[in-house]
Amino acid sequence: MMLLSKSAPSRSVEFDFACRGHEKTIASAKFSNDGSRVASVSGDKTCRIWSTKTGILAQILVGHSGGLCDFTWSSDDKIIATASDDTFLMLWDSLTGKCIRLLAGHECSVTCCAFNLPSSNVLASGSSDETLRLWDIKNGKCMLIIPAHADPISSICFSADGSIIITGSYDGSCRFWDKHSGACLKSLSVSEDKAIPISFLCCTPNPSYILLGTLSDSIMLIDINSGRSVKKYRSHMNREFCLPSSYVKIKEAELIVCGSENGHLYLWDSNSQQLLCSIPVKRIHEESSNLAVAVNISRNRNSIVSFFLKNDIDHELKLWRFSERK
């Protein structure tokens, strides 16, 4: 099917199964930290949790009165925080499916949220109201409101030690914030004219680097210390949607994975920056189309979840897995 790396044994990506049930477009899907479950949020106002072993729906989280944009697992996978267009965030018990708390305060739809790993006692959320808010998980109080950007915040994450919050915004800048004081520590711009929005960012296991995606068909690896890009991955299409990119390690090969707006998912070698392969994520009933595919990876199980953004027909999650070929 494809050769990932010449040195590593050839491996392929195989389709596992599909999870169906959402009635509207899926906005985000992520694996739990232990890899045993995958959850998805959708415009149909629900969040669904599936088992990655059997594909059976484990829980449906119903309660938001607007479509859901993003969600995040706590480090022990017990809590799920969902961010919604109804301006609220909600905390859920992922095992019982019960709502725990409502976090109210944002003035516009909440676009992204992240727990501070590994302690998961603070939730950071970014919103279209251009503010970044920090919430005390224990009692649901808003600890800090930071007017962070000049445009909606598209993505948010914590540094590896949980002391810094990193936000990316449609205003083309990526900012680093001190969790305790709320002080802006650093700001990076994609380009001089500030016209290229940042669509996604996430931390890597190496605390020195973050992965950052822009709406100009590129994903970059940023060195936090120097504030410069050190690797760039291109050739996929990404102009419109916030496609999450992810990283995976297979034997010794470190790969970057991202969906694309042409119905394919792309894999790059993280060091050589070379495109290894692109795989069409086909729909069952129709021929492959120009739909945007978003993917996410379970880091310990080497499986991929993919879904189509913004479409009327296909609201399913597809699970893929890396398997060794003999």
């Binding site: 990526c174 990076l188 711009s189 994609v190 380009s191 001089e192 290229i196 890597t204 296991p205 190496n206 020195s208 680097y209 950052l212 822009t214 970059m220 690896l221 940023i222 060195d223 120097s226 504030g227 410069r228 890009s229 050190v230 690797k231 760039k232 990283y247 390690k249 470190e254 993280s270 060091n271 050589s272 920056q273």
Partner: peptide, 20 residues
């Protein structure tokens, strides 16, 4: 000022993403 779009800082050096 260096911008992220600036290609001059790109490197082919081996960076370990999994350096935990």
């Amino acid at each position: 000022v260096t911008y992220l779009d600036d290609a001059s800082s790109l490197t082919f050096a081996d960076l370990k993403l999994w350096d935990t």
